[in-house]
Every structure is written in C-alpha cells, then in structure tokens.
Design a protein around this nucleic acid. Structure first.
Lengths: 358, 358
DNA sequence: CTGAAAGCGCTTACAG
DNA sequence: CTGAAAGCGCTTACAG
C-alpha cells in the first residue's frame, strides 16, 4: 500500500478545530434574546414574523446549527432511534454474522419499512449490528442515551438482549414474540399459519413425499414453521416428515438440500423456511437433475427479492416485512411519546404467493 | 392483523418515565464531591483506592449511568462514529437501494473491518444508509453532532455527499478517491492494477475473444476497471473489447451476461467487475450450455463470500476490504484526536486469486 | 488527592 | 409576543 498527502483548504466559513457558532452569537447578531432565537429554531408560533425573518437571516449568515448535546440535555430527546440487529449465537459471530446480515434481503426490508415512517416523523434511524461479542457494548450505547428508543431484531430463544434492553429506561419494540414473557411491545407474523399454507398448497398439488428445510430450531421462525408444517400434514394422514435444520443462509440451504436428497431421493414436495435457503435448494435440485416443479415442488417463505431471483420463480409465503417494520416504528414512536403506554403485540397474517416452483 | 395486550412490570429499580439517577446522587450516597465521582468514572489515576471503592459501590447500588448529553456538552465527544453508505443515484433510491445494500457482502466486510478497530478503541459504530431522498436528513444528523466522525462509502462521481460532508466541522474518511479534489482522507485500491491482473490471467490462459461486464461507469470502480482491462489487452494487440455496463447486483450480472452472449456467442474470456455480478453471469453461462472455464473463462472482482458460493468456484481479484475499512477507521480516529492533521490517501494493492472459473 | 465553582449551549416556565 | 433567569448533568481548571 502507498500513501500520499492531500492538500487543500476548508470550504466552510469557520475552521475545523475552532468552535461552532452558538445560539448566543445568533441572538447578538439579530439583536434579540437567546429565548427568541430558540423559539424561532423550534418553530414556536408566537414569534413576530419580522423578528423571525431577522433571526433566520442571522442563522443563515452565521451558519448556525443547534448543538445536540445542549439541546437534548434539557429536552431529553435525541430525535433518533436505533435498529439493533442482534445475534446471540457465538458460532455466527464477527465477520460471519455481518456477512449474513448484509447478504439477507430481510434486513433491508426491515430497514426500509422502519425508515419510511420514521423519516416522515423527522426521526433519524441508525443501524447497529450486535453480535455476541458486541452485545454488552451495544447495551452500553443504548443506556447512555444516544437514542430515544430501539427497534430490536432478535430471533434466538437464548438471546439475552430482549430481556436486557427491555430493562433499560428506554422504550423498545421487538421484531418477534420474545421467548420469555417480558413487558415489551412486539410485532410478529402468524408463523404456524404460514407453514400451514405451504403444506396445504403442496398437498393440493399432489405432493405426498414431503420434507422441509428449517431455520435454526432455537428460533421461533425455525421452530414454529416446522411445527406448523408437520401438524397440517398430519391432518392429511402424513405422519413422518423428514427435515434438515439449517441456518437461513443460501449456502446453508444448498447443504441441507443435498443432505435431504441423499436420504430421500424420491421427494416430491419441499418446504424451505426462507427464500434464501430455497434459492440454494433450487440450485442443488437443478444440479442433481430434478425438474422443479414437475419432479419436486418447492415452497419458500418471506417473498423477498431472493424469490424473484430464483429460476423457476419461487412460490412462497409472503411476509409483509416492510409493513411489519413500519408498525414497529409506529409503536415505538407511541411509546416514546407516552412513556406509560402499555405494551402490546401486533400479529400479521402471511399469504401464499403462487409462482412457478410449486 | 390482530392485537393483544401484554401485562407485566418493569424489572429495573427505577420506573420508566421517572428520571435516571445522577452523579449528584452518587456523590451524596458515597459522601464525596461530584468531582470525585466524575474522576472515578473517567478512570482518573489520582483517586484514593478506598474512596474509589466506595464510589463504585454507590454507582452499582444506585444503577448510575453517565448522561451522554451532559458529558458530551463539555467534552465535545460522543465516542461514536457513523458509517454512512451513500447512494446518490435516484434510480436506485428507497427500498431498491436498501435491498442492494443488504444483499451485497461488500458492505458487511466494510462494517466488519471498521468495527474491529473501533471496538478496540471503545468507539461505537452506527450504520446510516443514505439514499438520494435521505441525504439531506443524514447531513443534518452529522451536523448536529451525534457522532465524532464519519466513514463515508460513496461511489458515484456525481454524489454530492463527499463534498458536503467534508465541508462539515466533523472529520471524515472516504472509501475511494473523491471525484473532485476535496481535502479529505480516503482509502482506495489500485483499480487499474486489479483489472490488469484479470486481463493478463485470461490472456495467459489462451482466451482471445474477451469481453467484460462493468459496474456503473460513473463510478471509479466501474470506469477504472473497464479502462484497465482494455488498456492491458491493447498491449497484447487486442483492440476491440466488447462490454456491457451493469449495476454490481447479481440480477444485473445475469442480464448483462445474456446481452453479451447474444451479441458475441463465441466469447472465450469474461471479466466481471464484481463477484456478485459474476455469480449471476456464471448462472447464465450454465443455462446457455457453456462450460466454465473450458468454453469461457471467468474472472470476478472483490473476492467476497459470493466468490465461494459460485459453481465453479470463482477466480477473482482480491480486494482486502476488511483491511481497507480498518485503515479508514484508524485514519478517522487519528483525525478525531488531532483535528489539524492533514488529509492523506492510502492505496491498497489487489491480488489475483486463482480458483476454478479461470 | 479532594472540593467549590464555573461553564458547556441549550430550553422553558415565569413575568411583563 | 419577548426577555431575564434558572436549570438540564456533567467535566475541569483552580485552590488547597
């Protein structure tokens, strides 16, 4: 690697390192009190329009920006919230965890949905990945008061973060029903219904030798989707449903599909607990010479962008992730506004989206 | 969707909505002055060990956490920095942009590399996606002083953010050489060298009918990789190198590969400007019955996790993204500590990683 | 090594 | 509608 020096000067009016302009300086320049400047900045209606104009000019001329620390010291607000993506599983820690986060469209949808409503309310969103090694540092960040609230994405039953964060002084909304009963609002989807939809569709197509690739079984999405799939098939007299537990990644889906086909080469119906794993499974089926859906019909879960990247297009269970994240944001905003508000849960319903793979 | 009420009580000592304990309360309980408590908290060496113990007990008993706003009002530090992922292209705005970010392993590697050095220094990292619609809100966030510095990921020549952010009072380190000469530190890779490595390897393998799939040509990574590829082949007497411009996504790579093969069915060597597009191209080549590398040899760029997910395994140009991000973090820390430090650039060298596809 | 006091830059009752 | 003043919760010279 090589280094070079870069020259040039700042383009701002005041030099980096010197102090930024304060409200007092604006007041002096405009010839009014600090209180008046403060009112103008905060849009108080009770300000004479001429004075308002004078103050606004002074603000522009001087390049004034309110100091967040000073402001939030008195208002006790920062106008920003954190989206914490938690992963308590140490096996998936560090770079591996970040690779998973930045490779799964699910998190992008969550972010998009939350952004949408937050932005409209003038609230900033910051994303904080919290793998096992970073969890305590993240809790520290939240306790210090950097943000007004937290949207917590957590999936493993053993994850201590929901418990810890809900014990903080700051409002939190969780992305799924917490494993332990804690007094926090959460948004979830009816996992069992989704799995049931998949089972019924595969059965109705005529599939009888069914199997499933699950997510980690210590997550609700992993466990409940397997459970719902089996229970529904049981009502049709199909008792034994082979499954392989995997990890919600594409590569994991490939491995699981290979395992499954090795043990059950005559499969004709496959339910995969998310689209990313399904895309991997589809690849393996193709490599092994199986036609989809003719030889084996495949149903995914999520209806993410990965479903549309599949060949054939993936039939899947739609989870309205963006709306769910939007609802999380709305709940959080409500809790921030009314600290005494009681926690509540909001459960969304999944739907079947039929495309080509089943 | 259905709603439910959740009951339960808080597990903390003090109730949400009431005020958190202050340093004064700790001082009173410990029977010392606020200054002493402050010194204990900040690890000042000049504190009697008995007094220190007393204070620490009081802190623990009362569950005291320093108030960030009050602290940073005087220290002018927040001990956190932002990783801003900027996308000025309005076509890729909103949900599309977030889907791209959370689908490309590149950003996970950047985050991992930066986290590594930041965490060691006790600095928090928050990630902020900034698509065209959000850029001004993000600039506002940075100006207010939420963070001590910013790591800026920006690629389009027309992106106004590098310019704007470097005009702020806060230190910034950019992920690539800025299009316009602005006084900010940046870290980059020798793009031309990378492309040259790819060209030489394909040529040495015997490929003579070469083509390339580029990134957006208004980015350095898009433009310089195309340019370097062509220039190197020109030295071997290969003048006309067909190319298709794409967008660094997997789906974009698929489309581009289809276009390229339609116009040039006799291709025997392909350089794809990143691994994600290469994985899509590989898929298309397979669909069209081309054997890789026998019929057409393929070289990617990045050496990301996508390269290892390819069949055959992708030969690619390794970009040490984690180290580059680590260097960005180190530079930023230095600028935060010494505000007068001069900007500098650090350029890394790519290497060829030979696997199966070429 | 410890404490009293000033000050960081805002907002917000409270008067007028 | 506007201003003087108190106060938010810390840190840090300055004395001692």
């Amino acid at each position: 690697m090589t280094e070079g020096a870069i020259t040039g000067s700042m383009s701002t009016g005041w030099v980096r390192g010197s102090r930024p302009p304060t409200l007092d300086q604006v007041a002096e320049l405009a010839g009014v009190s600090r209180a008046t400047v403060s009112r103008v900045i905060n849009g108080a209606p009770t300000v004479d329009s001429k004075i308002r104009a004078t103050v606004e000019n002074a603000i522009a001329e001087i390049g004034y920006v309110p100091n967040l620390a000073a402001r939030s010291l008195v208002t006790r607000r920062t106008d920003s919230v954190a989206l914490v993506i938690s992963e308590s599983d140490v096996r998936a820690s560090g770079a591996g965890f970040l690779n998973q986060v930045f490779t799964d469209p699910y998190f992008g949808r969550i972010t998009a949905g939350a952004q949408e409503v937050l932005r409209r309310n003038g609230i900033h969103l910051v994303i904080i990945p919290a793998d096992a090694a970073a969890q305590q540092q993240v809790v520290g960040y939240l306790r210090q008061g950097h943000v007004d609230g937290v949207l917590l994405i957590s999936s493993h039953h053993t994850d201590p973060l929901p418990q810890q964060v809900s014990g903080l002084a700051i409002p939190v909304v969780i992305s799924a029903r917490p494993a332990h009963r804690i007094p926090a609002s959460y948004v979830d989807i009816d996992q069992g219904l989704g799995a049931s939809l998949a089972a019924e569709h595969l059965y109705a197509r005529g599939a009888r030798r069914l199997a499933t690739i699950t997510g980690p079984l210590d997550t609700a999405a992993g466990h409940d989707r397997l459970d719902g799939f089996r229970k529904t098939l049981a009502t049709h007299g199909i008792a034994d449903v082979p499954y392989v537990e995997s990890d919600f990644t594409r590569a994991g889906g490939e491995d699981a599909a290979r395992d499954l086909l090795a043990g059950h080469p005559d499969l004709d119906g496959l339910f995969v607990a998310n689209d990313l794993m399904a895309s991997g499974a589809l690849q393996v089926l193709q490599d092994l010479g199986r036609r989809v859906p003719d030889d084996v019909a495949v149903v995914g879960f999520d209806d993410s962008s990965a479903a549309l990247a599949c060949r054939p297009l993936l039939t899947t269970i739609r989870q309205p992730v963006e709306e769910m994240a939007g609802e999380m944001a709305r709940l959080l905003l409500a809790h921030i506004r009314e600290p005494d508000r009681l926690p509540r849960s909001v459960i969304f319903q999944p739907t079947l989206v039929v495309r080509q793979s089943a």
